[in-house]
Amino acid sequence: MVILFTSKPSIIACGVAAGPLEQRSVFYSYFDSVAEDERWGQKSNEQGHSKMIQEACDIVMEKAKIKNLDVDFFLSGDLVNQMTPTNFAARELAISFIGLFSACATSVSSVIVASLLTELGASQYAIAGAASQHNAIERQFRYPINYGFQKPATAQWTVTAAGYALIGKHDPNLPSIVAGTVGKVVDYGEVNPLHMGGAMAPAAYDTITSHLKKRHQKITDYDLIMTGDLGKIGLKILKAMFAQSGEKQEDLEIFRDAGGEFYGEDEKFQAGASGAGCSASVFFSYIEQQLKTGRFKRVLLVATGALLSPLSYQQGETIPCTAHAIEITME
């Protein structure tokens, strides 16, 4: 379903807080704050996760020179059970809060909801975004951190990062959200939880094609179409799908993937980065700044999410996936 935002809500300010390992990221220089300690000085990983979200939101408010009382909505999500890190951060922030879960696609689904609220006139300022903390999420979905096991080349590394954006009324000097697509849940029968890129690529394909169709656009109308965390292999699959549907090979260069690029060519991270914080931290730092400088005029940000739980794949279920997209322009 494609939504047109006629009032064109703008991204007023962005804040990204990341963990110590993210210093290796190629996007490192765009991040606002990088912690020395992956627990942010807290007792548990989950508390650190919560603290990281708070820090990113504080950066956003500081940049926009507003206080938490000025913010109408806080829309966010993470991947821990019942989203406690986000809930606890919301307790500290004391802003009207709706928790959203679209797995790693939360970064964009929250922006869509924030844009809708802005469009409605219900919100002057809304903070939207997502976060993930490596240790907390690995524990949730896979093995204990110090358990040694061999990862296949398709595996991805959950990032420790929180990315938040302040969505407000249209400002011609700022990047503006003109349309958004709420994705369907797509399941092509992938069962391997260590091959998320392969599971999520069809969802990204579905969302991008329906967005382009409804908007009567071609992929070349964009300066960049960036997916969230398909990883290196997932991005190749997505490109191959577009190639099969008749797109020209040279036009496919428009597709990039935040997760695939996140750690550069470092083989330690296999196919790249993943996690709700991956797309959020890249979209709300690098992409926002590139839009502001005018390097990109029109981008489509497609955050992808795998809607599985450890229980569901142990019970032999396939991995349903979703993708949400926002079209951002800079005048």
Binding site: Q150, P152, A153, T154, Y188, G189, E190, H195, G198, A201, P202, Y205, I233, K236, I237, A240, M241, Q244, S245
Partner: peptide, 22 residues
């Protein structure tokens, strides 16, 4: 593209597990 076609495509692109090396 139906799921079967997709799985073929996916398998083509996904690098095989290097069993001998492992």
């Amino acid at each position: 593209m139906d799921p079967q076609e997709y799985q073929q495509l996916e398998q083509q692109i996904t690098p095989p597990t290097p069993y001998v090396k492992n």
